[in-house]
Computed example of a mutant assay.
Amino acid sequence: MSTLLHPPLPAPSLAAAESSTRTAELTWLLSSLQTTLASLKSGLEECADLLAPTEPGSTLVLSSLRSENLKGFITRVGTRITKGDIYLRLPSLPPPRGQNAYKLSLSTLPTASTIVLEQLTTTRTLINACLDVVDATRWTGDATNANFISGLLRLLHENISEAKAALKGWTDGQKAWHETPLPADTFSPPLPDTISFHLSISESSILLNVRTLETAYPVTGTNTPLSSTSFASSAAPSYTGFSLREKLAATLGVGRQVVHDEAHEIFTYKGQDVRVREKVRVESQDPSLMSAMAKLGALERCVVVWRRGLGVVMGEEGEGEEG
């Protein structure tokens, strides 16, 4: 019955029919992509708005888990940290006389250096590049050229993937904490060389690492460097009682317990070899960054689907499979 209703076409006619159908499908797909790109642009603009330097910004609470080692807040406006007060209670960082915590305050002077989150700068740059690509796809070039559209979709996918990776965490081009020390005038009073204050992005959250530092090879007058405990005992007197306990521990021959992952490493910081005495790591979820991350993930999946569909119609089934 089906053979009578749909007789098979001769081979030459079948090839011509397949080619005509593929051409019609490609024309329809390229036309529909122009409409779909409008919604993609809207999503990218929402991501750009979430990272825009809009006052009053996002104020984030910082607090160490199960301890009073670090408490405070920071305010993010776009890619910059504009305000912040951090209170530290660490054995290696005695507070000033009459105070129960060591305070770090971001300077509000117009001439002070500003903390810029390079990962957010990278993300904003890539999102703006995606918007330029969408405009180029919709308004310039040949919208009916499948190869042209395929190339632009590939570029969109790469840029969105890199923007998402920058919000997710460490990237290949990101420098380590000891390679990018903050200028002392970022804080008021200025940040001592014995403290490292490092902000970055991890899983669309603000990640703060505060480290107290000591010279890796203190001068002892001999060829034997001072131990960490010995260095601690020679530090400035503490009015919290911590330094006294360290001195007693050194006198009794009891070494300090290593409680962080960088205790046995040596870093070059501001031209000097240093060790990390103490390290506090605090994460604070940023709702705007989390929303941008989710939107970028959804946009990336959409672009992958479009690339895959276009690749199939063009006879390039392998295109767009990554991601």
Rank of each mutant, 00 (worst) to 15 (best):
Q174I: 07
G72S: 03
P183S: 08
A16S: 14
A16I: 14
A38K: 11
T114R: 14
T222L: 06
A298G: 08
A16F: 09
S200E: 13
G311A: 05
P96S: 08
E55W: 07
E262V: 09
A129C: 07
E18P: 00
S243Y: 10
L156G: 00
L207R: 14
S64I: 04
L310V: 01
T59D: 00
I74R: 04
D132E: 14
P183N: 04
W177F: 11
K270P: 02
L93K: 02
E46V: 04
G221A: 09
P190N: 10
Q34H: 12
S20K: 12
D261T: 12
K103P: 00
S204F: 06
T3D: 14
R76H: 07
P183V: 03
V77S: 11
A294S: 13
E265N: 15
K168T: 15
I160F: 01
E319S: 12
E214L: 11
Q257D: 11
P95C: 01
P287C: 06
P53L: 07
S202V: 06
V274K: 04
R138G: 02
M290T: 14
G320H: 03
G253D: 03
S113F: 03
G43P: 00
S202E: 12
T224R: 11
P53C: 05
P218H: 01
W170C: 05
L120T: 05
S92C: 06
V313K: 09
G169P: 08
A17M: 13
E118W: 04
T75P: 04
G320C: 05
I160S: 03
V210Q: 01
Q257A: 11
K279G: 03
A249E: 14
E162W: 08
F187N: 06
Q119S: 13
F267S: 01
